[in-house]
């Protein structure tokens, strides 16, 4: 054993920064939060063991927990397909062999760099406000707008649109995937008189399935974790009428506003399980729709 360490000292020295980060910033907090989720803890006094109390309260009594789930699920259900569709659409436009493709790629990626920022969320709030740009444009064509963000029925969709706008990274992955589909397949289809739409449905989509699957899983996880935009646009409250009470916003408030750290930890673990369940579901269904070219039977 000593010999082993002596021989690999250099390796461990180089690993140290990562190991410290992993144990103290990742694994440590993860395990501590698991413990805290079974306690009552206000960050001032010591945690008090409460067994499954937090979880029981969450599922049986906490109506805001269910509301947060509803908001988050709605957001995931709309934003993920829309973002993927936008990403695929733009990727297909860019896959036409343009000489300036690098420039366009950068331009279309820009919103993804800016979109998650506080500045853009603030800008978004102004745009969709009662006197915002959106309503000004609508009024030009004779439509009277409303406070899109202050109306609980529409507020979430403004965030869906904001999320859709950040299609940069799935777009790049789609673009790489599209580039990987052999041209011959389309040429063979063309000679066979296959319509563009059928080519898309019968060749592009199935050939892209592994990439779609990858993007779907990643974007779903991303969507469940959405925080900044909802937090900023709702002023950190989840208002109006809890219509922007994203799961993460609720969790954040429980932890850092009301200092119910034990309960917040339990919320975090439930979110983790939900995300894991969705990912598992995606993997379980993938064998029916995802085709890998190099798969062995």
């Amino acid at each position: 054993m000593r010999k082993f360490f002596r021989r690999n000292t250099a390796g461990y020295v180089f690993l140290t920064p990562w190991l410290i980060g992993f144990f103290f910033l990742a694994l440590g907090p993860i395990l501590v939060s698991l413990y805290l989720s079974f306690t009552r803890y206000d960050m001032v006094s010591a945690p008090v063991w409460d067994g499954l109390g937090n979880y029981q309260y969450m599922f049986e009594y906490d109506r805001r927990f269910w509301k947060a789930l509803e908001v988050t699920f709605t957001f995931v259900a709309f934003s993920v397909p829309l973002r993927l569709a936008a990403a695929l659409g733009v990727a297909m436009l860019l896959d036409k062999g343009l000489r300036t493709i690098g420039l366009y790629r950068a331009i279309f990626y820009l919103p993804s760099l800016l979109g998650a920022s506080i500045a853009i969320a603030l800008l978004w709030r102004e745009m969709f406000g009662l006197n915002g740009v959106i309503n000004q444009v609508l009024s030009m064509v004779g439509i009277t707008g409303k406070g899109w963000i202050t109306d609980p029925d529409t507020s979430i969709y403004t965030i869906v649109v904001l999320a859709m706008w950040q299609f940069g990274s799935p777009m790049l992955i789609f673009l790489a995937g599209l580039r990987g589909i052999p041209r011959d397949l389309y040429e063979a289809a063309e000679i066979d008189g296959t319509s563009r739409f059928r080519q898309f449905r019968r060749i592009t989509l199935p050939m892209l399935a592994p990439v779609i699957f990858f993007n779907l899983v990643l974007q779903t996880i991303e969507a469940f974790k959405t925080f900044t935009s909802a937090f900023i646009i709702s002023n950190g409250t989840g208002a109006p009428a809890d219509s922007l009470l994203f799961y993460t916003v609720y969790l954040f408030n429980e932890a850092f506003k009301f200092f119910r750290m034990g309960y917040a930890s339990a919320l975090a673990w439930v979110l983790l399980l939900i995300i894991a369940a969705f990912t598992a579901l995606a993997f379980a269904t993938s064998k029916y729709w995802v085709h890998y070219e190099n798969e062995r039977d």
């Binding site: 011959d184 040429e187 063979a188 000679i191 050939m207």
Partner: peptide, 12 residues
């Protein structure tokens, strides 16, 4: 109809 060098079979 055309036969391609790469066969161009639809892999899925």
């Amino acid at each position: 109809s055309m036969v391609f060098q790469s066969y161009a079979l639809y892999p899925h």
